[in-house]
Design a protein around this nucleic acid. Structure first.
Lengths: 227, 227
DNA sequence: GTATGATATTTTGTATACAAAGTAATAAAT
DNA sequence: ATTTATTACTTTGTATACAAAATATCATAC
């Protein structure tokens, strides 16, 4: 985590709020983000809103079309596939490094997070599982002991979050996800970086049936406010 | 390349100009970027400058300290190491994918770029080599046929550009770089993705002596305008 | 009823104004 | 002479004003 020095900038607070609403799906892909409207609803002027939107556009969460306003970024299918392909590689890299560099306390934390996932899985609670799964992955990133990599993985994870969330709804995904976690933890504890990387790549939903399942659920998201 | 639709936004033009000056070292790391000063020099108001700075901050090229203005980002040594570590992985991924997906015209272009490097190397011209080397790497990214990966690699490459440039000055680096390119091209043409990835990782300056050399040259950059 | 074109309205992009925080400068005290 | 406190000056961050582009509305023609 980057040391979040007291910001004192409204535009960043606005950015955080809008971002939160995007990644949780309150503002779905394709939704128009009217500057004046947002300014009014947040009780500020357009300036900090504009600055926030520019920042979110740089992060890839919104798209600013010159003179035509901002919308929540809609990710085309093939682009989504590409992003998952990169995400898999980044996470695999985390795993490879983590196998070499993870500390004892981090091992404990990772196992604890894994066990927490087990509870949600047994209770068949996709929402809890979703959050615990995210914690698990973030611990993995941190264990790489490469702060820049950790940031990149988190940033991309954020962009893919709305799509990942849908994933867990598909038949039996939660159970297989949990089983895969077990294999990943095992490989890391055994300090087998290549095995960890291989298993993580397989875990990140990208190939064959998995991605097809995801794509099939896509119409549920997106296409907000198109004519 | 992202389809650069006619922008019509001054803030983006300003961003491009400032970015250019940062990556070429005209604005060295640590330099203060005064909004009013920039606004005057570009003949616009502070607004588009501010928006440009926010965007550059998101890209990691400048650092905005709340209420204390923007400076050209200074990258700490360990952070720089982390970034090169990730860069190596991204490029290796490009190589692995390119080995599988490169088209015939792309093969031709890559070989042509490689041969162009040879000319600069033989003429012992680091500046030409620097530019031709960049072209070579960009062709590699494109050959991955993953547009998102290509963008990420280019973005990170941009951030590392001022540091990479120094690299070529160190003893004999240009010659070894060129030799490594040959091996990379060979592996890709042979469609051996793993070999290509291995060779690219070795090529990207990150381990042992190479990184030490880079660090040793760092004092040449940076520390502009500190008390 | 649909299509086309002119006009009106909305919305973005940039400039300017102003308040608050930060920085520099000066003066007083040890 | 160095340090501390008060004051003046910059510079940032936000609000508002205005111009230009895009969108919507409405009337007219076919």
């Amino acid at each position: 985590m980057e040391s979040k020095q007291r910001t004192s900038r409204r535009s960043e607070q606005m950015g955080d709020q809008i971002e939160e609403r995007i990644v949780t799906g309150v503002y779905p892909p394709g939704m128009r983000l009217d500057e004046t409207e947002l300014a009014n609803s947040f009780g500020v002027s357009r300036t900090p809103i504009r600055e926030a939107l520019i920042q979110l556009a740089s992060a890839g969460l919104v798209e600013i079309r010159p003179r035509r306003g901002a919308i929540v970024a809609e990710i085309a299918q093939n682009r989504l596939y590409e992003m998952f392909e990169v995400m898999a590689e980044l996470e695999a890299m985390c795993g490879r490094l983590a196998a070499r560099r993870i500390t004892h306390p981090e091992q404990q934390a990772l196992m604890a997070a894994h066990q927490a996932c087990e509870a949600a899985q047994k209770a068949n609670d996709p929402d809890s599982y979703y959050h615990l799964n995210e914690q698990f992955h973030q611990l993995l990133y941190a264990a790489s002991h490469n702060g820049f990599l950790e940031e990149q993985a988190n940033a991309l994870g954020k962009r893919l979050r709305p799509y990942r969330r849908l994933q867990l709804r598909v038949r039996d995904r939660m159970n297989s996800s949990f089983a895969e976690h077990a294999g990943i933890v095992e490989a890391i504890l055994a300090q087998d970086g290549d095995l960890a990387a291989t298993r993580i790549t397989a875990h990140v939903v990208v190939q064959g049936q998995r991605f097809a399942d995801l794509v099939a659920t896509l119409p549920l998201l997106g296409s907000a406010g198109r004519s």
